[in-house]
Design a protein around this nucleic acid. Structure first.
Length: 820
DNA sequence: GTTCCGCATGGCG
DNA sequence: CCGCCATGCGGAA
């Protein structure tokens, strides 16, 4: 049942902001006792329009909401309310919400001792339960800017006009006036305001900053900075003693509630949680509740730190301890339209509430998840975005953005594309190229890239309506929803009724491979996330190195693209000019194929190169390096060349090794092990024996290095070139895999023989993560892992990294000692 | 050295 | 430009 309330007469001039006041969609439900109605209150937008219907329910001590129109004694006997429709009838005479004749009394059994009213004016009872929407209207700032201003001494008037009143316990007897409510039996809870806890509030300082306007309006007046003590009672009856005081601040005051730490801790409140303040009348006892925010909670307006509920509407109230009754009070100022409530989508926040309610609690979903918000909703969203402050943004990130960006790094990578207009700036850092973008990446709809035997590539995008896959140009970036009708590139497929271009088998094959790649990537990242990889992971790493190739097996035409998303048609980079290729068997961790062995050997090569450079820096003798390289080439063949690859692609990243055809300087972006082996066995000269490769690969890295005149210090993680090596190791992640954590686990990345192979990496990384300036300055200390920020899943500052292909000769080039 | 206290600062609406 | 308020900061305990 929809409950719409009229707005009370504005106690203060309604500014423009008021028109955008956003309220939550509230849902309440309660037992259908006599005179009771289950209701579903939904509210999305609060507007100054006053054409809303109103309703009156009463919060009764025995629980539930009672219709004041058919105020039957709550009892077990089901007595249908004869005037049920009146429950939410518009109030007459433009009465104020929660005024004399308006009561919104969400009714869940109030078993809490907090409802044992205390007549002390400065007592507060914390009676709200976690996650209960007290006031879901989060836009309080606007209220707060104009709460009923009262002079000291006049504040804290419990019966001030315009205050919402919530009756507690039994509803008044027929004919009983509101002012005649008996203590303990007919008390009114007057919601005052609420505040979203800031980090400071929830911190250990023990000071809760109170909105000035609210503090002055609803709390006992204080004339001295020392203020006065307040006793707070929680839902369990526990009393907390606070000091309500203020600080002089810029000729003003800053009100704080001191000594809140024990309470905050006891209630396990954190920044983002909401503390609510109300008052119980008669007696004027202040009560305090709270509402927990969760990670998935979307605070409609976190920046709104408080809500002067009393001045406005204040119908909401607390849940009590009865889990069966989830009474979410309505905010009085309600929506002018419930449109959108029907097609609300789930959100964890609201799911949470729904869990404890019979009715659906779906407020705000429409707002946040595209539930076709009406005009008001639109305004709400607009307003919300307009009112995000820096501090508020922080909260928003914690509460909203975090939810909406709940993507893994990999997932995020899959959705990121360079901005269409972005042009990279190539930055050289040591022997790596960084393609740096000033523009943030854009999100794009997931697509699959395939390549045909001819090397031609296609991009496939799935229609959101018919789920058919349509071929679209490679350079197309689909932002979000896409339908066949949007297919302006292929008139034959611009309708959902058009048949799919791909045969079912082909499609299945593509999708299977796509999923397989994704799965393997995921597994790979899992392995990567293990701080200490054991040596056996080398095989896994090698396997990971060929993941992309796996994706190319089977259907000849199926291959994930070798193009990096930033590449555009016409791009002549080493990646784009290479046609994809590759077929063959999968590689398991124990695979000893040439490629896998090469992968292993590459790693050793890399280690040696690192050490070599280190030595070079120390000795500054370039000639030594040349000599060293000369004797370090195990094969003297193209096989020893570093895989030059270096790029990953969009969704289905593909490993791109040098093809064996190194003489042509040709890089096979989709090298396949079988191809290489076959080439070696048939077409090319078998320049290296498997036995030798195995021998090399299996040789302990340390001994291998010693043999090559390399120290082992770096093996133990004490390499001096922490900057460059760590960096490179970081970005030299798995083949065809984007770096997940660019600079972590130094020991694992650098020291372990399971360290990364020389593979493709291309990822969007926060510029701040890599601190390229620091890197460029070659200041290892500035580039220590500890100084790098943890990876940030999504950053608007991005950098892509690409291993510079083949710039340096493999130090093992020409080395023949391991050749047979 | 830590915590508390009071005030100052600065961002933002 | 002003007020609010989150938070920093320095001195005191």
């Amino acid at each position: 049942m929809l409950c719409l309330w009229p707005l009370p007469p504005a106690p203060f001039p309604l500014g423009e902001k008021f028109n955008f006041l956003a309220l939550s969609i509230l849902t309440i439900s309660f037992p259908l006792l006599s005179g009771w109605r289950s209701s579903s209150l939904s509210s999305a937008i609060y507007s100054t329009k006053r054409s809303l219907v109103g309703g009156t329910v009463r919060f009764v001590g025995s629980g539930g909401v009672q219709c004041v129109n058919c105020m039957k004694n709550p009892g077990p006997q089901p007595v249908p309310c004869q005037v049920a429709p009146k429950l939410f009838l518009p109030p007459q005479n433009n009465q104020r919400l929660f005024g004399k004749s308006d009561e919104f009394l969400p009714g869940r059994p109030l078993e809490s001792p907090s409802l044992m009213l205390d007549s002390r004016n400065d007592d507060i009872a914390i009676i709200a339960k976690s996650n209960h929407p007290f006031m879901h209207a989060q836009r309080a700032r606007h209220f707060l800017t104009r709460p009923p201003r009262v002079a000291e001494g006049a504040a804290f008037d419990p019966m001030r006009d315009g205050f919402p009143h919530l009756r507690v316990a039994r509803p008044p007897a027929e004919g009983r006036g509101r002012n005649q409510l008996l203590p303990r039996s007919n008390s009114t809870i007057v919601p005052l305001f609420e505040k979203v806890l800031s980090a400071s509030d929830a911190g250990r300082i023990g000071r809760l900053v109170l909105p000035k306007a609210c503090a002055e309006a609803y709390f006992p007046p204080i004339s001295q900075p020392e203020g006065r003590p307040l006793t707070i009672q929680d839902a369990k009856g526990k009393e907390w003693h606070f000091q309500f005081r203020f600080w002089p601040n810029n000729n003003s005051r800053m009100y704080v509630l001191e000594g809140v730490t024990p309470c905050i801790q006891s209630l396990q409140l954190q920044a983002g949680d909401t503390v609510t303040f109300s008052r119980i009348e008669p007696g004027g006892k202040l009560v305090m509740g709270f509402r927990k925010a969760t990670n998935t909670v979307s605070l409609p307006d976190s920046q709104i730190s408080a809500i002067a509920t009393g001045s406005l509407l204040g119908d909401s109230f607390f849940s009590n301890t009865n889990e069966n009754l989830s009474i979410v009070s309505g905010y009085s100022g309600f929506l002018q339209s419930m449109k959108g409530a029907a097609d609300l989508q789930p959100s964890s926040l609201f799911d949470h509430h729904a869990n404890s309610a019979d009715g659906d609690v779906s407020w705000l979903k429409a707002d946040r998840f595209g539930g076709r918000p009406d005009e008001g909703s639109f305004q709400f969203l607009h307003k919300r975005s307009r009112n995000i402050g820096s501090k508020s943004r922080r909260l928003l990130m914690d509460n909203e953005e975090a939810l909406e960006l709940k993507l893994s790094w990999e997932e995020a990578q899959e959705l990121l594309r360079p901005a269409p207009s972005a042009k990279p700036t190539i930055v050289m850092i040591e022997d790596y190229e960084f393609e740096e973008y000033d523009e943030p990446p854009v999100f794009a709809k997931r697509s699959i890239f395939t390549s045909r035997s001819t090397g031609e590539q296609d991009q496939w995008i799935q229609c959101d309506d018919c789920s058919k896959w349509r071929r679209v140009p490679l350079n197309v970036i689909i932002a979000s929803k896409w339908r066949c009708a949007d297919n302006t590139w292929d008139p034959k497929s611009c309708s959902c009724s058009a048949p799919e271009e791909l045969a079912h088998k082909e499609l299945q094959s593509i999708l299977q491979q796509y999923e397989e790649i994704r799965r393997r990537k995921s597994n790979y990242f899992l392995k990567q996330s293990i701080p200490e990889m054991d040596a056996s992971s080398l095989d896994a790493l090698a396997t990971a190195a060929v993941f992309g190739e796996v994706g190319n097996q089977g259907a000849a035409s199926v291959a994930t693209t070798t193009k990096h998303p930033r590449h555009r048609p016409g791009c002549t980079c080493i990646v784009c000019i290479q046609p994809p290729s590759g077929k063959g068997p999968k590689h398991n961790p124990a695979c000893t194929c040439n490629v896998c062995m090469t992968v292993r050997r590459r790693f050793k090569t890399l280690m040696m190169r690192k050490k070599q450079r280190q030595s070079e820096r120390e000795e500054a003798e370039a000639s030594k390096r040349i000599a060293w390289v000369g004797r370090d080439e195990p094969e003297g063949s193209n096989l020893s060349r570093s895989p030059r690859t270096v790029d990953t692609t969009r969704d289905c990243d593909v490993i791109m090794f040098d093809k064996a055809d190194a003489n042509k300087g040709h890089i096979d972006l989709n090298f396949h092990p079988a191809s290489r082996e076959e080439e070696q066995q048939h077409g090319g000269q078998p320049r290296v024996s498997m036995v030798s490769l195995l021998e090399v690969a299996n040789r302990p890295l340390e001994s291998y290095m010693k043999q090559n005149g390399l120290g082992s210090d770096f093996i133990n993680g004490h390499h001096r070139d922490a900057c460059g090596e760590n960096f490179k190791s970081s970005i030299l992640s798995g083949p065809g895999l984007r770096v997940m954590k660019p600079h972590l686990r130094k020991s694992a990345q650098i020291d372990s023989v399971t360290g990364p192979v020389e593979m493709t990496v291309l990822t969007f990384l926060p510029r701040s993560t890599f601190q390229p300036n620091n890197i460029l300055k070659n200041e290892p200390q500035e580039y220590s892992g500890a100084k790098l920020k943890p990876f940030q899943a999504i950053s608007l500052e991005t950098m892509t990294i690409r291993r510079r292909g083949g710039r340096e000769a493999d130090p093992l080039a020409g080395r023949s000692s391991v050749d047979p």
